[in-house]
Structure formats: C-alpha cells, structure tokens
Design a binder for these strands. Sequence first.
DNA 1: GTAATTTGACCAGT
DNA 2: ACTGGTCAAATTAC
Length: 349
Amino acid sequence: MVAAAAENSVCVAAAAGGGDDDEQLQSAAADEGAVREVAQAYELIKTHQPLLLLLQQPQQLAHSLLSQALRALNVALSVMKLHRPQQPPLPAAGAAVAAAVNNGTKAEPSHPSPSASSPAADLGDKHSGIKARRAAKRRRINNGEDRPSSWGHLTAVPYEDGYQWRKYGQKKIQGTSFTRSYFRCTYRDDNGCQATKQIQQKDGSDPPMFQVTYTKEHTCNSAAANVVPNNARRRLDNGDHDDAIWSSKMMVIKQEPQADQLATVSNVLDETPLHVCQDVPALGSKNILCTGTDNTSVSDEFGHQIGQQAEMVVLEEELVELGADLDYPCFSDDLYLDLFLQDENFDHY
DNA sequence: GTAATTTGACCAGT
DNA sequence: ACTGGTCAAATTAC
C-alpha cells in the first residue's frame, strides 16, 4: 500500500505530445482516475485503522505502517492537487476525494468546451478534416463510447500495482535503450476486462525507473489479489531474468528485499482476499520502518539509509512548499517521494 | 497437460 | 516506408 500510494504521488498523464484538446481531456480524466484511486485507498486505511490498531501486534508496528501509508497517500493527493490546479470537478468521487481536492483552489476546466469553435468557423479551414475528427472523438468521449483512459506514472516498482497481468508482447521502441513490454489483464478472457499496461524502462539508474502506462479501467475484481503477479514471482524464483525488465525487477527484489516484504504487509492491511506471500519472514526480523523524531538516521521502507534527521526537516520543508499537507505526526521519508522530488522530468508530464 | 512467456509476423495509423 | 501495438505459434515452466 505504501509503495502503491507513493507511486501515485508521481502519477502523471500519459499523453506525452501535449497541447491538444484530446490530450487535455485524457490528462484530466487520467488525473481524475488517479485521485479517485488514491482517495479510495486513503479512505480504506483510514476506516480500518482503529480496528487494525486493536488487532495487530505489535501495535507500534501497525501504527507506524498505517501512519506512513496515510501520510504517503495524503502527500500524493496534495501533490497531484498542486500540479493540476485546473482540474475539472470530480463526478462521483468519495468524501475523501472531495475533501482533498476541494481543500485548495479549484478552477474551471482548462480545456475549451466543444462548442467553443463554431462549425461555421471550421468550414473552409484546411484542417477541417482533422477538427471534424477531433470533434467526433469528443462526442464519442462525451457519450462514453470512447472514454479517454490512458494514464501512467514513473515508478521503480512497475509490477506492484495489485493487479494480475499477462504479458502479450515486447518491442524495441525507437529512441529508447530498453524494450517496452505489453501486458493485459489476466482476466481479459474470463471477465472481458480490457485493462492493459505498458512498461518502459527509462534508464539504467539504481533503482531503475520505469514509465508505466495504463489503458482502460479494470472491470474485473482482480485488484490487490497479488502484489507481484504469480508469473513474475515464478520467473523470479527460477532466476529466469534474461529480459531487461525482468532482470531489473530481479535487481529491485535482490537489492531491496524489504520492498517485497513491505508490499506483503500492505497486502494484509488491504484486506486482500488472496494472500500469496505467506512464506516471508516475520515482520519483527526486518527493518521496515524507522520513524519518529528521536532517530538520527532514517531508513525508508526498503531499509535504505536515506539521511539524517536534518535532511528530513529539509525534505519536509520542500513538501510543504509543494503544498503537501504534512499533518501526520509520524512523518518519515520514503523512497518514492524522494524520487519524485528528484525527478526533474516531473514537470513535463 | 495447462498456463504463461517469447518473439517474429501482421496490421493500422501516420 | 516507418513505427507502435497486437496476434499467435513456438517455447518454457510447473
């Protein structure tokens, strides 16, 4: 949950071209979906927090986990809100979404209405054909026939999104050093779920960053069934990782064993119906979290020593400047937020 | 045997 | 013609 929530903190619109009406619509819809998902997770944890604090032992660990997860989600919402100030109102989002989005300034939709350009003006325009097609697409979008549903984010853990995917293709993309992998929902044939996902490794950094692009919403109920797909787990178990992406994943798992473990913990918190990672060591044996103000050295959920207390203060100030609501007393850094702050390309999305 | 991945081929859009 | 996305037969793993 923490990882997934933090991933969403760098959630961006996938349309890279920019400057087009359709892409603005897509971007708005993408952000809308991202905010909705984060808010849903936020509300879920918030609702179950009292119960978990009663049942989980040790309570301190449960408290730390929940606090960090809530904080990560809260920061993600704040950051998304900040970077999309002209986001149109959300249609049917929950109370958390409304509270989070309405907390700040809210402007009218930035994209012009379809009626902004008159049909008469389009006539005689040498680009009337293109405009007509765009208008037709807008009509399809408005009618729900061709709803824009492409969104993506930059992440170090491209496989851990709670859904099960089946790889159906891989391609070398022009101008990139790494192949792009294509996935579709495992339940496409069973449930007709049309969700697809593309994973493109962006660089060879440590950890490697991946651009993950989703298309179409899930219509199945496979969410959170597995943090790491079974097929990926199988391949990792076998040490079969010739593919650049698989090897990258292997690297992530090998270098950050706690990441996989934390995802498992998050799974438990999510009331996951199917829990497949029951062979991991006991929580107490791992340094998953290090929170609080007394620590001189701070670790992220992967166990990285990410800095001293003073650096945490600096990071917190940066977040406040970004508009994040750091209203959680158990503040600690996490890798993804760190990556977000370091991501110079973020503004381009 | 079943299910998932790999990879070259095919197709549509530009 | 080129490129990205998908298909499907072959291959691999359990």
